[in-house]
Design a protein around this nucleic acid. Structure first.
Lengths: 140, 140
DNA sequence: TCTGTATTGAGAGCCATTGTCAAAACGGCG
DNA sequence: CGCCGTTTTGACAATGGCTCTCAATACAGA
């Protein structure tokens, strides 16, 4: 996936999509579709849940947001700064994330795949931990 | 998780748990709880779905099976050969997996975490691709 | 064998996510 | 500016994975 360019079909500018975009811009942490929907709702912006899901999905397909699975398997989204492929160092407690690139890892996965004859490779790598701020709060 | 030892509480040997164990032994690929349940059912061994879930979950907690999330977020399980921490090269098409260890990666994630002050680190890394066998079938 | 406790299982329940489809919103065009 | 074909939306139903409930049942040690 996301190997080809971004020959995105349509893409009308609508109030709903703008709203979702806005929330993503303001949020530095990974959030779920449900949370995003709740924020919009509390903010008065009426946007249907289905629309939030659709929008996030489209954005994810286009590579405009990053997706990863929370512990329970729930999908969480985040607007990323760097366009290129990268990974995250995510705070288990507050969701704060740092984007990191790992040329070493990329090379390593490639060599492993080659070694075993696997083709059309992709990979997922996320690091979870407790960020400095949260760590400080729990043991002062 | 799985940092501490395995102070597993009880663990009675039951027909159901043995059945699940058996299927896992015979299966080299990652399979979902639902699939495992279907296999048991087709085999005549009556084991409730809830039990399959519970058993797999317990095994996962004890580190006796590895878990990872399929594309749709569904959890898939597999009995692993090596006890220590490792990763997988998984076939997107048939689920066949190769276990691989990556000292380089372990070191890298550790250094990244340190760099940003994150503590109590854990990480997930899985490589997906098409195995030689499946690749051969699709373009002969 | 007896007994206290761990385990099971059928089914209800929970929750994230997707499908449906008529009504509403876009945006290019005249 | 209003028209129109197409894209989007959204309320709600429907899926599907997974968990909870709790009475019935199967262990395992005495």
């Amino acid at each position: 996936m996301s190997v080809s360019g971004q020959p995105v079909k349509e893409q009308r500018r609508t109030r709903q999509r703008a709203a979702v975009d806005e929330v993503l811009d303001e949020t530095a942490d990974f959030i779920s579709a449900q949370e995003l929907h709740a924020i919009l709702r509390s903010r008065g912006a009426g946007v249907g849940l289905a629309t939030v899901y659709r929008t996030l999905q489209t954005m994810a397909d286009d590579g405009r947001v990053d997706v990863l699975r929370a512990d329970g398997g729930e999908a969480v989204y985040r607007r990323c700064l760097r366009e290129e492929h990268h990974h995250h160092l995510v705070c288990r407690s507050c969701g704060a994330a740092v984007e990191i690139a790992g040329p070493t890892v990329e090379r390593w996965t490639k060599s492993m795949a080659d070694k075993y004859g696997y083709v059309d490779i992709s990979h997922t790598l996320e690091i979870f931990g407790t960020c400095p701020r949260c760590a400080a709060q729990s043991s002062p």
